Amino acid sequence: MTQKIFVAGASRGVGREIALRLVRENYKVTALWRSLTPTIDLEELGIDIVRGDALNLSEMEAAMQTEEPITAVISTIGGLPQDGIRADYLGNRNLIDAAVKAGINRFILVSSIGAGESAAALSPQVLQTLGAVLVEKEKAEQHLMASGLTYTIIRPGGLKSEPGTGNGVLTQDTKVSGMIHRADVADLVCQCLGSVKAENQVFSAIDRHQLYTQVEFSEFKLV
């Protein structure tokens, strides 16, 4: 049976890349959409659109009550605050809680290098600039790990919008940082979706040829 995946954050960036890749890999995709702007391009690809705001728990609970059971939730939400409230923690908390209530077992959260113990990978200047955001992302990670869901947390480095390089890798070395293309993050997320080895794991995601500093590290192999 074809798996149905719920993607939060599919309107742009990594979330959009993930939704498009899942369709190419013959998954059924439901995309959460907060904006009222048209979504014709995604709908033409067969992606189901469900409208709702991740900051509203009841809307997330309703969004996940679909006729066909959802296999997994993938969230990339975050970014600019809405009315002073960031979605990085509160939005993801609502998605996690709604997934638990709906009986969905699998949740993949796209976070950021700098959250949690990976703060060791960033310079003091970068940590000072991003500190408030990273605190919210770490709170979301902790909520997910405590939820009882089967989780995977992926922390990308600096994001680039050019076409993927195919050099994106996962590592559990929390001192490594670098750049990675959004398309390559999407590829790694989809690989984790199909890998038992990725279950209940936390990874950093970087391009092996775009490290900030040249250091030795171990790549995590999903197969």
Rank of each mutant, 00 (worst) to 15 (best):
Q172H: 03
D207N: 14
T152P: 03
F203R: 09
R182T: 10
A146C: 05
I49K: 05
R21A: 11
N167W: 01
G178D: 05
C192L: 07
G114K: 10
Q214A: 13
L188Q: 14
A140T: 08
D83V: 00
F203N: 06
G116I: 08
L80M: 14
S218Q: 14
M60D: 02
Y89F: 14
R24Y: 01
Q3K: 15
Q172Y: 01
R86S: 15
M1S: 08
R155M: 10
L42K: 12
E67L: 05
M179N: 12
S123I: 09
L188P: 05
I153V: 15
V126S: 11
A87H: 09
T76E: 01
A120G: 05
E59I: 10
G103V: 05
G131W: 08
L144P: 07
A62S: 13
E117L: 12
R24F: 00
N56A: 02
A115W: 08
G52M: 10
L122Y: 01
S118F: 06
E17H: 14
G103C: 03
Y212R: 10
S161L: 11
Y27G: 02
E17R: 15
P38S: 15
S75W: 01
K137H: 06
G79I: 06
M1D: 06
T76H: 03
E162C: 02
V23C: 02
G9P: 08
E199C: 08
K175Q: 13
G9D: 12
N200M: 03
D207M: 07
A198D: 04
T171F: 09
C190R: 09
S58I: 12
Q128F: 09
I5G: 03
R86D: 03
R12K: 15
D88K: 07
S118D: 05
S111G: 05
H181E: 09
I206P: 11
I49C: 07
V73K: 02
A72F: 04
A31Q: 02
R86L: 03
M64A: 10
Q214D: 15
V126A: 11
L36E: 13
I47S: 09
A87I: 10
R86Q: 03
D83I: 05
G103Q: 04
Y212K: 13
D173R: 11
T174H: 14
A140L: 02
T165A: 04
S123F: 02
A87T: 15
R208A: 07
D83N: 15
L57C: 01
D41E: 15
N167I: 01
A186L: 06
G79T: 09
L122H: 07
A87N: 10
W33T: 14
E141Q: 14
Q82F: 12
L20D: 09
R182S: 14
P69I: 09
Q201S: 00
M145R: 12
S58Y: 09
Q128K: 14
V196C: 00
E117W: 02
S58W: 00
S112T: 11
S75F: 08
V133W: 08
A119F: 00
V215G: 03
D83T: 04
L144M: 09
R51A: 03
E59C: 08
R24E: 15
P124H: 04
G46R: 03
L32Q: 02
Y212N: 13
S35A: 06
